[in-house]
C-alpha cells in the first residue's frame, strides 16, 4: 500500500486543470485491506461510487483475498461500479497468478480489468486519470451516461 498516497495524490491532481468541469465535490478514498467493512461505522459512511479491487498479480494471496472479498459485495455494485486494477504484470517472470484467471474474474463480475505498474510514475499517473474518468461517470457527473451503460461499453466480448 505504499503507493496509495501517490496514487491518491495523482487522483486529486487532475481535478485542478485537465478536466474541463472540475468536480465540485471532494473525492474521498477509503482504503480497506479486505471486505466486509466494519459494521459499526455504517451509518456515517458516505455513498460509494466506485470500488477498485487491487490485485497484485505476483501474489496468490492477493488474488484469493479479492476473490473472498467479492462475496461480501452487494450485487448492485456489479452494475458498473466495480473495477479491477491489476498490478505487477510488467514482470512476467514474477507473476504467480495467471492472466487468464484475472480476465475471467473480470468477465464473471461484468467489470473492467485495468493494468497498472505502480513502479512507474508515468503509468501510475495515467492510470489514476483513467480511474478518475470512470469515477466521474459512476458518480453520475457525465450527463447521459450511466454506470451501467458504461460498464456495458467496457465489457469484452471474448467470453461470449
Amino acid at each position: 500500500m505504499k503507493y496509495w498516497d501517490q496514487l491518491s495524490e495523482a487522483y486529486n491532481r487532475p481535478l485542478k486543470g485537465s478536466l474541463d468541469k472540475p468536480l465540485e465535490k471532494i473525492i474521498f478514498i477509503h482504503l480497506a485491506t479486505s471486505l466486509p467493512l466494519p459494521a459499526e461505522r455504517d451509518h456515517i459512511r458516505p455513498r460509494i461510487d466506485l470500488i477498485v479491487f487491487m490485485i497484485n498479480i505476483q501474489s496468490k494471496y492477493s488474488f484469493k483475498n479479492v476473490e473472498a472479498s467479492l462475496s461480501h459485495m452487494d450485487a448492485k455494485f456489479f452494475l458498473g461500479k466495480v473495477c479491477f486494477l491489476i498490478t505487477g504484470a510488467g514482470r512476467v517472470n514474477h507473476c504467480s497468478v495467471e492472466m487468464n484467471a484475472v480476465r475471467k474474474l473480470g468477465n464473471l463480475h461484468c467489470s473492467p480489468v485495468i493494468f497498472c505498474e505502480l513502479d512507474s510514475e508515468g503509468i501510475r499517473l495515467a492510470t489514476a486519470q483513467r480511474l478518475l474518468r470512470i469515477l466521474q461517470i459512476c458518480a453520475g457527473h457525465v450527463p447521459g451516461v450511466s454506470a451501467l451503460f458504461f460498464s456495458s461499453l467496457m465489457k469484452s466480448s471474448i467470453d461470449e
Binding site: S18, I114, R130, F150, M154
Partner: peptide, 8 residues
Amino acid sequence: AQLFFTSS
C-alpha cells in the same frame, strides 16, 4: 476501445 472510453 477500453482505453478510448477511459482516456482523455
